[in-house]
Design a protein around this nucleic acid. Sequence first.
DNA 1: ATAATATACCTTGTATAGCTAGGTATGTTA
DNA 2: TAACATACCTAGCTATACAAGGTATATTAT
Lengths: 114, 114
Amino acid sequence: MESDKIIERWVPQFRKGLLEFIILLKLQQGDIYGYELAVEIKKLTSIEVAEGTLYPLLNRLKRDGLVTTEWKTAEIGSPRKYYEITSLGIETLAKMKSTWTQTHNSILNMVMQS
Amino acid sequence: MESDKIIERWVPQFRKGLLEFIILLKLQQGDIYGYELAVEIKKLTSIEVAEGTLYPLLNRLKRDGLVTTEWKTAEIGSPRKYYEITSLGIETLAKMKSTWTQTHNSILNMVMQS
DNA sequence: ATAATATACCTTGTATAGCTAGGTATGTTA
DNA sequence: TAACATACCTAGCTATACAAGGTATATTAT
């Protein structure tokens, strides 16, 4: 199979879990709503998050108590559902950071050896 | 839900795709057979790869032409199926490295801002 | 001898997550 | 008034990690 095609299939798998990590990182910087989150992630990481990925993911985070939500209706525009990270979310994020750092260091060692 | 439990469920997702990357990295350092690969990955990254994960993954790599295999029977011990990375595998690995580096840099920026 | 453990391979079924492709509704611009 | 952008959501598909099973050989302990 062609290399580009393989990468195309690999990237979504690579993102699994990572996306959750990235979203929590972003939420730690302040409350944000779903649509803006997708735009921000694209800008910061070049990762294009499909809405069919994003909204179910945010619901999982809420279900597990990592975030809370609040509808905010402005004078103009559609109502927005804002997400706020909880203390459990912050605690979990710290562990993810640790896992990420550890894994990255291991991979870096392998890359340097090759 | 408890933070540890969340991480426990998150880690397998985090690994998706990453594992493929790690295996190709390891294969680039020389031919290796499945069982030894699992032991090596554990030693290098602290990631315990289940055999039910490893062997299907290796078969996928072979199916896609990223590796070739060769049975080797020694005087003693069970026969071993050795995996060798192909030129397509090396080409693909280079792209994975690039994706990895790019993503890592983005995340690093977010971690530093928080 | 025989039981237990380690090595070395494999497969089936389950749970989960990303993505495609749809949908609804409001606001803005051509 | 038509087209586009904003902003939310869901159903169904596919792929992957993992648990739990299996087979076979070699080594070590009893």
